[in-house]
Design a protein around this nucleic acid. Structure first.
Length: 484
RNA sequence: UCCUCCUUAGCUCAGUUGGUUAGAGCAUCUGACUGUUAAUCAGAGGGUCGUUGGUUCAAGUCCAACAGGGGGAGCCA
């Protein structure tokens, strides 16, 4: 019977007054052959277990090593030492699992994040990753709470799909055909996917949006929250081959409604974590400040982590159109002095990440919602804006750019007019026959609707201040790397 | 995929213009001490210098390829 234990997080909120408790956890350090710092993952704060001299066998004490797991019973008393308010005076100590100190790779000292990435199966036992993953959990919970409270329906869209949602991005193939080249070929010498498990070529999803639209045009408001896969050979601190994305889709929403929801959503998530994970945020803020001490002054953040989050809560996001952004960039000193690696050539160009960073981090110094991009650089399903200047056709797209992260949200009002949508698909070589089911939403009771995708890991990065996306997902999948 | 930097003890790192037996702190082990806070003190063990090949009388040090990792870029969320 193990479940009579009290979690350390809860115990530490109590007043020490001689209560008898059972705790279980892992040893962080054993100081002075007398003080065990015990952690059970419920909080970064350890419980100090006091081992009275002569009360326990030396044999037992020798087995209390870093990361050994213990069951301890005893009495809670006010601590005689300075660092903590209570001690657990041990009556019994049971070693649940030994941890060979010569082989256990983590020590009670500072390890580099790169080193811990290679020990991803054990890094949860550190303070940094303890905080990161508790915050990640809180954010995931807050996502569901936000949408549930608003009456959105949580929709599970398929992970195996036959459609290439945005015509962009390499996809992972899903097949049961032999990979040694012996699969049946058709007359043209191509692999005959009629022989495959699903009777057609299938992939891992790159987005649940198209299926989400089917839900939205029946339920009104839906959201998805699931894994997404991109087989791009991207090697950066903000890309994963497997990541989690939240994609709300709303009927009877236009672009402005969409932007309002996205802004409210992001602020809600931040507020939830500030209110519910104060200790973890404080730890992460301190960690980030220490890390930034190593950087040259001009590369350090102007605000501390919590200060930054509170700033984002207190100020509305800057909204401007793509056209206005191009004007700002073109007239910036940075551009006039040719300090951009990619010159701002003018209307129609795609923004490079240095341009986005300039707008967010230098010009506005807060999150920015960029809208109404040129149609030529955006996806087929985005709604064409009416009354555009000749040669400057735009779509009702929006990207939300966050300081230090870049694009955190991408969304749009969807093209609900069948004729315009079909014309656009033809233009962009999207096979409309295969998408008959998608087009049916426009054939039968089409409505104005909109939605967006929020990269969950990027949101976790923004809130925790972790600079590498591989440190905010338990087991990162990146090109050449799928250990664990 | 491109550019760039890195790879020396379990970890973090030093190692001079190529030249005897490759060092430090922490960790580990042994002992001491015992109200400690990454405890402290003393001693000990621990290395095919990422891999392969080359240059040289001599390579941790120079050159090349490969592997792994960091930072930046592209693609994107």
């Amino acid at each position: 019977m193990f479940n009579k234990r009290i979690k350390i997080k809860e115990l530490l909120t109590q007043e020490p007054n001689g209560q008898e408790v059972i705790v279980m956890g892992w040893v962080r350090t054993f100081r002075n052959n007398q003080f065990i710092a015990l952690n059970d993952g419920s909080t970064n704060n350890n419980l100090q277990v006091v081992v009275e001299l002569g009360k326990f066998d030396d044999e037992l004490l020798r087995r209390i090593t870093t990361s050994a797991s213990l069951k301890v019973t005893g009495i809670i008393e006010p601590s005689l030492g300075k660092g903590q308010k209570m001690d657990l005076k041990a009556a019994t100590i049971e070693i649940l699992g030994d941890s060979d100190a010569e082989k256990y790779p983590l020590q009670p000292k500072k390890h580099s994040l790169e080193f811990l990435r290679e020990k991803a199966h054990l890094r949860f036992r550190t303070n940094t990753f303890g905080s990161v993953f508790r915050v990640r959990h809180a954010l995931a919970f807050a996502v569901h709470k936000f949408f549930n409270d608003k009456g959105f329906l949580y929709m599970h869209t398929p992970i195996i799909t036959a459609s290439d949602a945005e015509g962009a991005g390499e996809m992972f193939k899903v097949t049961t055909l032999p990979v040694d080249g012996s699969a049946t070929r058709d007359d043209a010498g191509k692999i005959d996917f009629k022989e495959d498990f699903f009777g057609r070529a299938t992939n891992l999803t790159v987005s649940g949006q198209l299926e989400g639209e089917l839900g939205a045009t029946a339920f009104g408001d839906i959201y998805t929250f699931g894994p997404t896969f991109r087989a791009e050979n991207s090697n950066t601190a903000r890309h994963l081959a497997e990541f989690w994305m939240i994609e709300p889709e709303m009927a009877f929403y236009d672009l402005e409604d969409n932007a309002n929801l996205a802004e409210e959503f992001i602020q809600y998530l931040i507020k939830y974590v500030i209110e519910n994970n104060k200790e973890d945020l404080e730890f992460l803020a301190q960690r980030l400040a220490e890390e930034e001490k190593q950087l040259p002054q001009d590369k350090r953040s102007e605000m501390g982590l919590i200060e930054k989050l509170e700033f984002v809560l207190a100020n509305s996001f800057e909204r401007l159109t793509y056209t206005e952004a191009i004007d700002i960039l073109k007239n910036s000193n940075q551009n006039k002095k040719k300090k951009f690696q990619y010159e701002v050539t003018g209307w129609g160009m795609d923004l490079q990440s240095e341009h986005e960073r300039y707008l967010v981090e230098k010009h506005f110094k807060k999150p920015v919602i960029l809208t109404n991009y040129p149609a030529a650089i955006k996806s087929f399903y985005m709604r064409l804006d009416d009354n555009c200047e000749p040669g400057k056709q735009t779509v009702s797209a929006m990207d939300i750019l966050a300081p230090g992260i870049g694009e955190i949200v991408g969304g749009s009002q969807r093209e609900e007019r069948l004729d315009k949508l079909e014309a656009r698909m033809k233009e962009m070589n999207i096979p409309s026959e295969e998408m008959w089911w998608y087009l049916d939403t426009r054939r039968f009771g089409t409505v104005p609707h909109a939605g967006f995708g929020l990269g969950f890991e990027r949101m976790v990065q923004f809130v925790t201040g972790m600079t590498n996306i591989r440190d905010v997902i338990a087991f990162p999948r990146t090109p050449g790397s799928a250990e664990f």
